[in-house]
Simulated assay, not measured.
Amino acid sequence: MTSVSRNKGVFDKMPQKIVCVGKLKEKYLKSAIDEYQKRMQRFGKLNIVEVPDEKAPQNMSDKEIEQVKDKEGEKILSKINDQDFVITLEILGKEISSEKLAQNIKDWTTYGHSSLVFVIGGSNGLSEAVMKRSNYALSFGKMTLPHQLMRVVLCEQVYRAFMINSGSAYHK
């Protein structure tokens, strides 16, 4: 019996979703995401849901920034169901290893969360409402990455987590 078949009941064809602000324009990033979506098919569909970003001037006041985050937050929340387990990407979230992310995904899905939703906010961050809805705040470190590149990094790490949980050598 292989590792894949041992975990099949938990990880077979489980839908995953990434909700993100803004449209991906760069072809090379789209290509990378398409590749990880294709690879993820053996575990389930990896859906990318884009919500429009709010047009905002460069030098906004703190109040204007909050208004933009609130509007984007409403759009994000409209894509999340009550039963979804929500993982937000936040600078102040928990920094964990790929192995720990894999273990968390395994635990979350084993204990009744069949639909995981990862959320990447806009350039101003996430609204309070989205952060309150979050079940887990995840950080990829204190460095700032372009949101479009963060999608690729997240897709790869989700794929890596499923490969770790299936016992694949991909992670090595």
Rank of each mutant, 00 (worst) to 15 (best):
I76Q: 03
L92Q: 14
M163C: 07
Q67T: 14
R133I: 12
R151M: 05
M150P: 04
K106C: 09
I96H: 01
S78P: 02
D107S: 13
M150H: 00
V4I: 14
I91Y: 05
S98G: 02
G44A: 10
K94H: 12
G141T: 04
G73Y: 10
M40H: 11
V153Q: 10
Q157M: 03
A161P: 00
V21Q: 07
L24R: 07
T109N: 09
V68R: 02
Y170E: 02
R42Y: 03
A161Q: 01
K38I: 09
I91C: 08
D34Q: 13
V21D: 03
A32Y: 07
S168Q: 06
S166K: 15
E128P: 10
R160Y: 07
E26G: 05
K132L: 13
D34R: 11
S166M: 11
I164Y: 00
R6Y: 14
L116Y: 01
G73C: 13
M14W: 06
Y170H: 13
K13M: 12
K71W: 00
S97H: 06
M143L: 15
R160E: 06
F140W: 02
G121V: 09
G73N: 09
G9L: 13
V21T: 10
I120P: 01
K94N: 13
D70Q: 15
K30M: 14
L101W: 05
I48H: 05
M14Y: 06
